[in-house]
Amino acid sequence: MKPWLTNLRIVGIFFLLVSLGYLWTAQTIPLDFWSEQEPFNARSLPYLIGMACVIVSLLMLILPSPTFDWAQLLELNIVPAVIMLALLSTYGFMIDKLGFLFSTFCLLASGFLLLGERRPLRILLVAAGVTGTFWFIMDLLGIYLNPGDLFLDWS
């Protein structure tokens, strides 16, 4: 007996719920009186797309589905990926506060270290080189990169 819950069906169930939520939200799109009378308004395409998504999701649940090797997912290197994600997210929050140069250098250096680079000189040179070169090119192109709110407040 093959397991019923395949990758296709899990995603099918997920997008069935998403499409129902999408359709529910679509009917809350604000329309004025005139738009409501029009044959095509801001809700029309979302309704069509939402219904198509419901149909395809249901087909995924009903039609035969090849089995999926769940065991392969256990072999993934999840921890460094999650830490890298956290680093990038922190970078997103910090780029305006700490400035491009400092936050980019920290992101690159910590990323290299996290993913297995162990030569300190290479880490420092590449992180500083890429950060500086990027800053220089953007400066040449006349694109302003924020030196950081903290730096601006201090100066």
């Binding site: 679509a26 799109i29 395409l45």
Partner: peptide, 28 residues
């Protein structure tokens, strides 16, 4: 095939996020 169709529809869904320029109303 079904996966590709579903992903196409999800792409269409994402494209509806933002302001509908014809009516000037916000969606999603």
């Amino acid at each position: 095939y079904l996966k590709a169709i579903l992903m196409t529809i999800v792409g269409l869904m994402l494209s509806t996020i933002g302001t509908d320029l014809s009516a000037g109303v916000q969606r999603f």
